[in-house]
Design a binder for these strands. Structure first.
Lengths: 330, 330
DNA sequence: GGCACAATGCTCAGATTGAGCATAAGTGAG
DNA sequence: CTCACTTATGCTCAATCTGAGCATTGTGCC
């Protein structure tokens, strides 16, 4: 085996691939989660929103540093937290086939602290729920879900093979909480993939040239290529991460109120939290320390300004917001 | 920005990369965690253990399916669970520079159920703690840690810049639980990287041709290229995953005893668990169901054989073994 | 039968969690 | 100036979960 392995590994050299980087750059302002988008696409398929994507720059020693340099140069945004998300390499999903070369995209998640006007004309910050509206449960169950669920159930029902139908129903329960399942806010990608398979995502038809405007309002704004999938991956990852790592603070200004922090966490996770319990959590974990400042101007009692306590990283094994996933009613 | 982005993205096509796949194939037999290794390396640097690595096969629609096909063909092992781990692309760590091409490795974690003799001569199953001995705390704190810690402290102390020294000490606390920190069994990669930086990993010197045998016993058996880093990534990921996904069952035979299950979880996480509480956990989560079978032959009361309850996937949002990370003594 | 051994059952105090009530401290209207 | 309103913050309480240990039940062995 080793022989064969080695031979093949070297074979890869004569079989090079086109590799690109994609970045999901996230910020949160005014309690809304935003991603940096650009306009992409030629005149053929029309222009559409996309994620910033760039080449793999061979000058840099690591992929991450290459990404940092490239994004910082282009957006003039200092990237705080950067994390590799996933490497996408589906032939049939990439959209562009790079003429025989296998084409890969290494996707990264980046968190930035401040939202500048995004200097460059065609880049803009967009609320990420614009692209995945069913993920926002902050105002209760999204209305659009009713319609989506109907279509999903029809899709599951449309399977002639009873085994397949059963499996589809199970997946609906698992991801969308249908058929007696519970909604798990982390399964963003699984939900998107399910919608994709069910044919409810226009991008799925994109390559075949069909235009399907009908589903736009319900299943969200499409993006170029497979970028909604990348976005879904990022959101799911971030929603998981905030529970055991204090990454939210990468999105906060130097000082903030506990309620602003809560709003940000809620924005990311797409759910609402119990206010008093949230502060208890933050206090217990020692995630923040008070400053002298207080808010003013707004209505209501002024709130104390706090700042992130970096020391918590050394004290706690997994500091974060352990928002328990909703327990199923026993 | 969009313009520039597009131009550069297309630029990537004229700047192709060599891409390979690496697999960490994990099994657990007799309560020991094992990884499939092969012998790699030419005569120049001598042969050493490595992970199975192969080319990116363009025929397959997805990376994962390519990996599955390739591994199954080579090892005759049916891969159960497969998960993408990370894409490694460090210029200075890869070992082979592929002559100007940027070279990437997409690493995967695979869990297999049974350990066949691994048919092929040069492939063999190895206890993974052979490569990362400090990660095995099942028999208490590993002895080798004393020596490792000494060297790490010396390394931290060796920083002339007091700020840097402080940072190194913090990292020691965070990863190795030194300086008042706690041991977190998930930080496998961070520990490995720290040892690497501290110069305690022979592979770090590998490229410069130095031979350092002195550290072998304490810092574990080296591997080819950067494969220990890949292994560390896999272990860390798996240790995290078992807490909220029932992936351990991919490693178990169709029926097993609760204690065998516990031994497997312990093998992966490298820690010991309270027996009674472990069964309570498993029972509460509904992870298994009883069969009619019982063990026999061994000493002591026979144990009931159980099997994995697949339905749990549909019932619980995050079924797994929530072994709480050790709380710091307040 | 009696012993060693492992499986299994059960208890209990302390910590964590989910939910709500109560109070404090501002703003703006009348 | 006072009241109504709004948001911040403090505190309680029951339900549940966790960590740890004691007790009992089956088997093989002598």
């Amino acid at each position: 085996m080793a022989e064969e392995t080695q031979r093949q590994a070297e074979g890869a050299l004569s079989n090079p691939s086109a590799v690109g980087l994609v970045a999901v750059i996230v910020a949160a302002t005014d309690g809304e989660p935003r991603a940096l988008t650009v306009q992409v696409g030629g005149q053929a398929r029309g222009r559409s929103d996309g994620l910033p994507a760039g080449p793999l720059v061979p000058e840099h020693p690591t992929l991450e540093r290459g990404l940092r340099a490239w994004v910082e140069r282009q957006t003039h945004q200092r990237l705080g937290y950067v994390e590799q998300l996933y490497t996408f390499g589906d032939r049939d999903r990439q959209g562009d086939d790079a003429g025989g070369l296998h084409s890969l995209s290494v996707a990264y998640l980046a968190l930035v602290r401040e939202v500048r006007p995004a200097g460059l004309a065609e880049a803009s910050w967009r609320n990420w729920y614009r692209y995945l509206p069913w993920e926002d449960w902050r105002a209760g169950r999204p209305e659009s879900l009713a319609e989506i669920e109907g279509k999903l159930l029809a899709w599951a029902d449309g399977a002639t093979d009873p085994k397949l139908r059963r499996r589809r129903e199970d997946r609906l329960g698992l991801t969308f909480g249908l058929c007696g399942g519970a909604w798990n806010e982390e399964r963003v990608l699984e939900r998107y993939e399910l919608l994709f398979e069910a044919g409810l995502i226009p991008e799925a038809q994109g390559q075949s040239g069909e235009a399907r405007d009908s589903d736009l309002p319900v299943t969200g704004q499409p993006m170029a290529l497979d970028h909604r999938r990348v976005l879904a991956t990022a959101i799911g990852r971030l929603r998981g991460k905030i529970k055991y790592r204090p990454v939210v603070f990468e999105l906060m200004p130097p000082t903030f109120t506990l309620f602003q922090l809560q709003r940000t966490v809620e924005a990311l996770s797409g759910t609402n939290l119990h206010k008093q319990n949230f502060r208890r959590l933050v206090a217990q974990q020692g995630l923040v320390e008070e400053t002298d400042g207080v808010t003013s101007g707004a209505t209501g009692r002024p709130a104390r300004l706090v700042r992130f306590r970096r020391e918590v990283l050394l004290e706690r094994p997994a500091p974060g917001f352990r928002l328990r996933p909703a327990r199923r009613p026993a």
